[in-house]
């Protein structure tokens, strides 16, 4: 019954997405290292397509070097996209010039992985949180801006009397609260979270995750939640997108992807996540995990994952698998059907 509803949800045309990413690519030109070498092209994000519905939380997971941080920045046009399309609420973001982009900046904000590095050490908390308001809502009088900063501080769990303190006087968890306050001060609809909890202490992580969830509910936010930590993605996301070497290998609803991951890479990634329970952890010990992510400068031909894949066949090196609908989600693997039949056991 549940599965049926899922199927129909996925196959029916979904509600118009708030953010629509279509064949997005971000390539960097990196100077060669030796004197003979030419400029090399780093395909950090290479032909990525997905949508994020209003009020949804989309989790993006992948290993380091898979392009997830670049993708986050490209969504906000903090790094220029090489090709593709990016639509926010129906407007083509990539076609806008810097000036017409500005009003849209109010709608989409970002929080960063290293919360202290994301705060200017020479500014007070009040200046930091007030900065986007100042730039994006210049019509607001000073007093009003100040009041909003204080209200925002209180909301994220900072004391308003800390408004004149400097970033370096705060711990990592508090600094991340400042980052969240800054992002939400302009009342955005979309919040991109680039590994917001991965550099925080264990006991602080859950505080910040709870805060993000509360704020999401309160302000009807749409979240793009990027992480390499599967557990927090499983907790917070409704849909999960798996990236490998700049490409999407699988997208599915949280429940579907964790119950039966379709792509061999997704399986490997899930199997490798350490489980905080010795009995379960020791059962998982023998799950095969092979190799390391190859250099993004020369990704393998065909399917980029084939070099580490236990199921790779000849076709995988010859032909790049396209992302296609399967069993309620989307997957980019030639053998997905076979594998799906083969292993119905939840990982």
């Amino acid at each position: 019954m549940n599965a049926l509803r899922e199927m129909s949800e996925a196959s029916a045309p979904r509600a118009p997405a708030l953010l629509e990413v279509d064949d997005l690519a971000v390539h960097f030109h990196v100077p060669g290292s030796g004197w003979k070498e030419r400029k090399r092209v780093l395909r950090a994000v290479d032909g990525v397509s997905f949508g994020v519905a209003e009020r949804e939380t989309l989790g993006i997971v992948g290993e380091s070097g898979c392009g997830k941080s670049t993708l986050a920045r490209a969504l906000l046009r903090l790094v220029p996209a090489t090709s593709g399309h990016l639509h926010y609420a129906g407007r083509d973001l990539l076609a806008l010039d810097a000036k017409s982009l500005r009003p849209l900046r109010r709608e989409m904000q970002i929080i960063f992985q290293d919360p202290l590095a994301a705060l200017d050490p020479r500014m007070t908390v009040g200046q930091i949180i007030g900065e986007p308001l100042r730039a994006l809502r210049p019509e607001l009088p000073r007093a009003e801006r100040h009041a909003r900063v204080l209200a925002m501080m209180q909301r994220v769990g900072l004391l308003p009397n800390q408004v004149n303190r400097y970033a370096h006087e705060f711990s990592g968890g508090q600094a991340q609260r400042i980052g969240i306050a800054r992002a939400l001060a302009v009342e955005p609809r979309l919040l991109v979270c680039d590994e917001p909890v991965s550099s925080l202490d264990v006991s602080i992580k859950s505080q910040v995750i709870n805060l993000l969830q509360e704020l999401k509910a309160e302000r009807a936010l749409t979240l793009v939640f990027i992480a390499h930590d599967l557990a927090s993605v499983r907790h917070i996301a409704q849909r999960v997108l798996v990236l490998y070497l700049g490409r999407v290998v699988e997208i599915a609803s949280r429940d579907a992807i964790f119950a039966r991951p379709m792509h061999p890479y997704t399986r490997m990634l899930f199997a490798a996540a350490p489980i905080p329970d010795p009995d379960a952890a020791r059962r998982m010990r023998d799950a095969p995990v092979r190799g390391e992510i190859p250099s993004p400068f020369n990704p393998p031909s065909g399917c980029a994952f084939r070099t580490r894949c236990a199921f790779a066949v000849e076709r995988c090196s010859a032909e790049r698998p396209l992302l296609r609908d399967l069993s309620g989600g989307q997957v980019a693997c030639h053998r997905a059907e076979e594998l799906l039949d083969q292993a119905r056991v939840p990982v």
Binding site: D201, Q213, L230, A231, D255, P276
Partner: peptide, 25 residues
Amino acid sequence: EGLLRSVPRPDVTSHGKLATIAGNP
């Protein structure tokens, strides 16, 4: 208790709020 209860698990889907240890290190 706080450490073990507050971390989400990758093998179980948790809903609602996570348990937390208040305050800072």
